[in-house]
Design a protein around this nucleic acid. Structure first.
Lengths: 204, 204
DNA sequence: TCTATTCTGTCACTAAGTGACAAGAGGTCG
DNA sequence: CGACCTCTTGTCACTTAGTGACAGAATAGA
């Protein structure tokens, strides 16, 4: 009851991420990951379909948190106002912060580790699916609507580019970012990329 | 000189695609692909980093052709006018048509074969990189510009959604499409998703 | 508490993927 | 033409990613 399957996957994900960062993807075996996580190799392969997929939960974690924030987005609020109000450093647990740092370092590693990109893109895909519902609600359409899916895809793509941009700048150029600035970037990207009028207050 | 490496990869890709469609991904081994392509297993693994990646060239083929069409897009022409003028059925070789059909069938298979999605997304990623140059030229900015990359990502995401939508409709619902309609959809998607003014005639 | 179910580890196995090396297919220069 | 160079391929042995089958531990529910 304490740790359900998704939690367990995330825990393994953290170990895998650290190993990938330390020794590279090719330099870490499934056994290494299993050992670090205190599991049998067999269980690791039950959790993940491939070695690279071991980091997907970590990648997805922030997307999922972001999506769950957006799910609470009141119809009457603009994206800028809402994000600044809803995302505050104090709300983040140390674990979440550590996960974000790990994810950022992994994203910065993408150019050097092409194998990780599949995991990254798959995580963005699940993020996109989460966004579909948000867009559907704010545009008062169905999640199956073509324009809704297109909007969600465009928005997710924009968020991905921001993520990659910030991550590489932070790691490879050692640039420092303040949370409000990142929120501004995210909000601006969402507003720019959204193809349906979801960013400003909608209806009653 | 006749068949360079990329051509060889594409040829293998066709065999892999057919096998995946016939027997499923899990049901076809690397040996099967190698045998079908008339190559040794070793060469297949020299061409591709994984079994699923064997279909990437096929996925990328249409993106690459589309991108090369867009590369010729004159600055004074709108996206709708140009696409209708530049894409004509008669220009397509039988091989290209067959490749497109294969790609469409594979895309329609994505829900049933999650393993293929990594290959699909990676191909969309290379398509995105191609688009960056097009967007850069039409917006008179550098390919490294953040807004250029964001626009390319949004446009590619839109094209991907169109592709997935058309493919599933064509295969799973047996819907028939006429080329002009698809071009309309593509153009509309590009116009909708583009975050920079690239769709209409731009300066001299 | 007994039981049904779900989860995990062990172990043997298949198949994906790599390293090392030798043989062949051009290409260039004398 | 032959000698040489380079690039690609196949062979084979090998490592490791990933699966199937089963038995034991854990957990939920009555």
């Amino acid at each position: 009851m304490t740790a359900d399957r998704e939690d367990a996957r995330l825990i393994v994900s953290r170990h895998a991420a650290k190993l990938f960062l330390e020794r590279g993807v090719a330099g870490t075996s499934g056994d290494d990951i299993a050992e670090a996580a205190g599991l049998s190799k067999r269980t690791v392969w039950r959790y993940f379909r491939s070695k690279e997929a071991c980091v997907e939960p970590l990648f997805s974690a922030s997307s999922l948190r972001f999506a769950s924030v957006l799910r609470e987005w009141p119809l009457q609020t603009s994206i800028e106002a809402y994000l600044h109000e809803a995302i505050r450093p104090l709300d983040q647990t140390p674990q979440e912060i550590a996960d974000d740092v790990l994810a950022v370092r992994l994203v910065a590693l993408l150019p050097a580790e092409p194998a990780l990109r599949t995991a990254w893109l798959m995580s963005c895909h699940v993020g996109e699916e989460q966004l579909i519902d948000v867009v559907a609600q704010r545009s008062r359409r169905l999640p199956t609507d073509f324009d809704v899916r297109l909007c969600a895809a465009a928005v997710m793509a924009a968020l991905r580019v921001v993520d990659e941009d910030v991550s590489t700048a932070a790691i490879t150029e050692s640039r420092k970012f303040e949370l409000p600035d990142i929120i501004d970037q995210m909000a601006k990207a969402i507003r720019t990329a959204s193809t349906l009028p979801i960013c400003d207050p909608v209806g009653p």
